[in-house]
Design a protein around this nucleic acid. Structure first.
Length: 339
DNA sequence: AATGCGGGGTC
DNA sequence: GACCCAGCATT
């Protein structure tokens, strides 16, 4: 029986883990808590000096609770996410009023405090009290997503559920503090976002992403928020037989090789003579991965019996007998035929 | 489920 | 300049 995931990670940690970070000496619940709050969405190298200054000024829960919030925030200046500092101060006061100045050793008690969510609570339970609890920070998400081959952006709740379940399942039977630290250390130093050192990873033997050469695409990145917009004008031209003018698209690119409505590079010059001035039709919005494509049709009736400018790539088609036409374009034609 | 919060590191 | 970082609270 090969060593378990957790055992391999812990053995690796003994040789290669980080053991001299400021909050690890000494490693108390209070120091773990403060460090975890500072480390939310903030890199280790940035936090180190802030943490050291903070501990000098506020060495205990009581000293923090009795401070003015402005004094706390002045030490936070430059770290960003200042609600973290305010919540830290507020939570210290709650601890002094309701918990005798001690941090709870259980997840529910910790998560009831402002600024402490599921992952930070798990970090305090495991690293502050050496008790079993999973964490799921950016490092652990990356390690788990790669090792188990989890697709999808971890920000999606379905993906997050899978990752939390994995984190829970893989907890060791002891050394809980070292295990949490090891999980983050592996992500920070070996299973890095760019160019992971898989040759040095204790989990490479059964890592799905490594074996399938997909480390570079896992975990999946956050989807693009605001895509570029592109606008094209289309000619929606019908002749007196009720046929529509279609144009074959270039073989590569979007809808490559399919038939579509002629794209107008010159909005004022139709590809053939019209009976009446064209009128704008309903704008078609087509979402693609990298941009939003707005297709603005100009609808018109063509004069009969005239040569088509580009006869090889342009032709009339009956709407009930269309060739390979993308569905959105097909709908556009249908709507124009029977409004 | 999506968004705001922030300064800094990295490619 | 885009993307991400030991996430959480709010909507």
């Amino acid at each position: 029986m090969p060593p378990s995931y957790a055992d391999r990670l812990l053995t690796w940690f003994d040789d290669h883990g980080r053991k001299h970070l400021p909050w690890q000496q000494p490693r108390t619940p209070y120091r773990v808590w403060v460090s975890e709050i500072m480390l939310q969405q903030t890199q280790v190298t940035v936090v180190v000096d802030y943490f050291t200054r903070f501990m000098t000024r506020f060495p205990s829960v009581e000293s923090l609770a009795s401070a003015q919030v402005d004094d706390v925030l002045s030490l936070w200046a430059g770290l960003g996410y200042y609600a973290r500092g305010r919540n830290l101060h507020k939570a210290a006061q709650v601890l002094c009023e309701q918990h005798a100045g001690k941090l709870p050793a259980d997840l529910a008690g910790l998560e009831a405090l402002p600024g402490i969510g599921r992952s930070t609570a798990g970090a305090i339970v495991s690293m502050g009290f050496d008790q079993p609890a999973p964490i799921l920070d950016g490092n652990v998400k990356r390690v788990l997503a790669r090792h188990a081959g989890i697709d999808g952006w971890p920000g999606r709740s379905a993906v997050a559920r899978q990752l939390w379940a994995l984190a829970e399942d893989r907890l060791p039977s002891g050394r809980f503090a070292d295990y949490s630290q090891a999980s983050m250390d592996l992500g920070a130093t070996v299973c890095t976002r760019h160019a992971p050192a898989c040759h040095a990873c204790p989990l490479n033997a059964d890592c799905v992403a490594h074996r399938s050469h997909r480390t570079h695409e896992l975990p999946a990145p956050k989807p693009k928020a605001n895509r570029k917009r592109r606008r094209s004008q289309l000619w929606l031209i019908r002749n007196e037989q009720g046929h529509y003018l279609l144009e074959r698209r270039p073989p590569v690119g979007i809808w490559g090789g399919l038939w579509s409505l002629p794209e107008a590079d010159d909005a004022t010059t139709p590809p053939l003579a019209l009976v009446e001035p064209p009128r704008p039709g309903p704008v078609l919005v087509h979402e693609l991965t990298h941009f939003t494509w707005e297709l603005c049709p100009m609808s018109a009736l063509a004069r009969g019996a005239q040569a088509i400018a580009d006869g090889d790539n342009m032709s009339w088609y009956a709407p009930d007998n269309l060739p390979g036409v993308p569905a959105p374009i097909r709908r556009l034609i249908e709507e124009d035929r029977a409004p």
